[in-house]
């Protein structure tokens, strides 16, 4: 039976994945092993997204399946495991921009992949990012922006983090419609991503 759950998630077979999860729990399989097998399925989904087999809706669909599995398994996990997170991230759409859907999807994907995410919303002033870093001690910051004018706000936010003496304590990623490496250099961020899966990979790589 090992690998069936991984395959069901990888193939986006929602009902089958949920059935297998319940079956495994009922037969005494450790909940952490179920989650581990699920994460392997998500890794395959990520690969398929990367090679163009899956598109964004399918990526989100897989994350929703993982979320459902986590909800089923959660009551069987110890309190310690339930609250265990990979790391803390702060995400927000920078000042002057109010686009939210891309940012919300990144927040969801980071959350489902085990991060504690602090979502600051949209049109977020630089100082708010600084205050949240100081408050939470988060080591990963994501700046979202769709408009070209967001590039200046991203730079101002990175500068504000630097001015607060926090730049060497955080890794900063930027993302949005028109972001590329030129914009990354201009803003002073550490990395950029063109989709939610890249954001997850970057965050995991910075742990």
């Amino acid at each position: 039976m090992s690998g069936e759950l991984t395959k069901a998630i990888a193939d986006l077979e929602e009902n089958e994945a949920l059935r297998l999860t319940r079956e495994k729990l009922d037969s005494g399989v450790e909940p952490q092993l179920i989650l581990e097998e699920s994460r392997k399925g998500m890794e395959i989904v990520g690969q398929r997204f990367g090679d163009g087999t899956y598109f964004l809706p399918e990526l989100i669909f897989s994350a929703e399946i993982l979320k459902e599995i986590t909800e089923i398994v959660k009551p069987k996990l110890t309190q310690e495991v339930q609250t265990e997170r990979l790391g803390k991230c702060i995400i927000g759409t920078v000042a002057g921009d109010i686009h939210d859907i891309g940012k919300d999807i990144v927040v969801f994907m980071l959350d489902v992949n085990g991060f504690e995410v602090h979502d600051l919303g949209v049109d977020v002033p630089p100082q708010k990012f600084v205050e949240k870093i100081q408050e939470t001690g988060a080591a990963i910051v994501g700046l979202s922006g769709f408009l070209t004018l967001a590039f200046d706000s991203m730079k101002e936010t990175v500068d504000a983090v630097k001015a607060a003496g926090l730049r060497d304590k955080v890794k900063i990623m930027i993302g949005g419609g028109q972001i590329d490496d030129e914009i990354r250099k201009y803003s002073g961020a550490d990395a950029f991503g063109q989709d939610a899966m890249t954001a997850v990979s970057l965050a995991k790589g910075w742990l």
Binding site: L12, G52, T53, F55, L56, P57, E58, F61
Partner: peptide, 13 residues
């Protein structure tokens, strides 16, 4: 929706 290959779209979607 950002889907560029219609034939492979999941029926659930």
């Amino acid at each position: 929706e950002g889907i560029r290959r219609q034939s492979s779209v999941r029926p659930e979607i």
